[in-house]
Design a protein around this nucleic acid. Structure first.
Lengths: 214, 214
DNA sequence: ACGCTGCATCGTACATGTACGGAAAAGATT
DNA sequence: AATCTTTTCCGTACATGTACGATGCAGCGT
């Protein structure tokens, strides 16, 4: 097995990387998101500042790593709220998604409101969905609704619509905390109900193929 | 008139400020948004870097000034698309809003996707609406629809819903340009139609009063 | 006329993200 | 074993946003 050296290396690298992520996590908990600087992070693990760049392309990359963790727990939380009624199950997704976004605005921002987010490293979008388990749950629960005849149309299109509405709601609440949306919970519920009611009435055809680019 | 000295001062200050804004505008046109740095801006108008801070609280403040301009032109553009049918007039708002956001992603981002946006300087949210003429047009056109009996419910609530849906759509397209939404135009139209159809069916009660905070 | 007060302007300094290239360590090749 | 190559790590340097405080000047009261 001529790879063993190579793979051990990579394992080492992965270990160091997650050590860094862990340290970053602690830093954020202790000092908030602004407290996370490359220099502090490096000092924390006993490296020189520039050494961090051996494990992360840039600071964004670190934030993504943190956010990925956060979204894994989101997915877990969602799955703790199942329901026999597929529509209710969908509502639970929306509710948990919203609660998460409002409760972790920094993580939400880095994942969903940040820069032209290239797929973190040459990953295709499919792999990105993979990395975002929450979206997978959403789609699967939409599929359940379609299968049960509660919703009509293309599951991905429906899921995307829900995503757009949910994201619009959350990101507005995050960005304009002083704007009179009223009680955030209530606003979320209203938008969620609005979207679901619309979807139960209307049929969602598949998204058009992306024409030339990509 | 004992104020004359004072007021002349303020006029001077305002003039210098808009000179700075103009210079910033040119810088952005010439070198893109990243090209806009305080130091370059100061050099451009012959000041020391720190002097810029006499006219702007921080860099955000400059970006806001640029964005305000941009949104004034958006409002103008919207008003170039009137219609006798109030629903069509509403659709025009959404369409122009979307076109603007997709065509000026940087401005859109600074206004709608940036930081916990305190009202730029102690302004109340009402003044902020004042500064965002586009929102005013939206509300007035919603009111027209309600008056014409095409929509039911509280105009502000309806407008906010449209805003949330529109914003979700645009910001997703901006943030994930590689995600397979399909043709952006088509996606925007789909979401817009979806929202309007929903609103024509459902009644929108007023937003709940914001409870304790604010 | 003379000092005083407030304000516009700026010089300096610091923390930060990160580009660049060097040093050193580890592994491969001979 | 000796040399070469690759990988890891880091020292230095730069541009940037911005805090702090100094400097100089305009207008005021005396």
């Amino acid at each position: 097995m001529p790879l063993s050296v190579q793979t051990r290396r990579e394992k080492q690298k992965a270990e160091l990387r997650s050590e860094l992520v862990e340290a970053a996590h602690k830093l954020v908990q202790e000092e908030g998101y602004e407290g996370l600087t490359i220099r502090k992070l490096a000092k924390r693990v006993g490296y020189a500042p520039m050494s961090v760049y051996s494990y992360f392309a840039d600071k964004q990359d670190i934030l993504f790593a943190l956010a990925e963790d956060a979204f894994a727990t989101l997915a877990r939380r969602i799955e703790e709220h199942p329901s026999d009624d597929p529509i209710e199950a969908l509502q639970a997704v929306m509710t948990e998604y919203a609660a998460f976004g409002l409760g972790n605005p920094n993580e939400y921002r880095t994942v969903f409101m940040t820069e032209k987010t290239r797929p973190p490293e040459g990953k295709t979008f499919a792999e990105m969905e993979e990395g975002n388990p929450a979206m997978k749950v959403l789609i699967s629960r939409v599929e359940a609704c379609v299968a049960a005849g509660k919703l009509k149309g293309d599951p991905r299109a429906i899921a995307t619509t829900l995503w757009a509405v949910g994201h619009g709601t959350i990101s507005l609440l995050i960005t304009f905390p002083f704007y009179p949306f009223g009680d955030p919970q209530a606003f979320v519920k209203r938008m969620c109900d609005f979207a679901l009611a619309g979807l139960m009435t209307q049929d969602m055809p598949p998204l058009t193929e992306t024409p030339p680019n990509c």
